[in-house]
Simulated assay, not measured.
Amino acid sequence: MRYYFSKNLDMPFAAAIEHVTKKLAGKGFGILTRIDIQHTMKVKLGVDFKPYMILGACNPHFAWRALQELISEL
């Protein structure tokens, strides 16, 4: 089961994060969480890892509709 979207972009990592964040905002999504895997691996394990960021995106309108459906089924 795939529960994420993945895309390779031909741009520097920081620019890609900014680009994706702006594109998501244009579709009504905001970033609720940013998990910096590279930083976490360095701090927690003392190891170097490639730049890797998990963006938790949410569209409040879609989330509200989904939650209303869930609540109505309880």
Rank of each mutant, 00 (worst) to 15 (best):
L67V: 12
K7D: 04
I35D: 02
S72C: 01
F29T: 03
G56R: 03
E73D: 05
K50C: 07
L45W: 11
F62N: 13
P51Y: 05
F49K: 01
G26R: 06
P51K: 03
R2C: 04
L32G: 06
L45G: 04
K7L: 12
N59T: 05
Q68F: 06
A57L: 10
R65C: 11
L55F: 05
K27H: 12
I71E: 11
V47Y: 07
M11G: 05
K22W: 04
M53I: 12
H19M: 06
K42H: 11
F49Y: 15
Q68E: 13
T21C: 06
I35R: 01
K50N: 14
M53R: 01
V20D: 03
N8H: 10
F5E: 07
Y3Q: 07
Y3H: 11
Q38F: 00
K50D: 11
V47I: 15
D36I: 02
P60T: 05
K23L: 10
I35A: 03
H61R: 14
M1Q: 09
P12D: 14
N59P: 01
E73W: 00
E18R: 10
A63F: 14
D10A: 13
W64R: 13
A15R: 09
M11Q: 12
E18P: 00
A63P: 00
N59M: 05
L67Y: 14
W64G: 08
A16H: 00
R65K: 15
C58P: 00
E69N: 15
K27T: 03
I71C: 02
W64Y: 14
L24I: 05
D10Q: 12
R34F: 04
A57D: 04
N8F: 14
V47K: 14
K44C: 05
W64D: 08
H39I: 01
L74P: 00
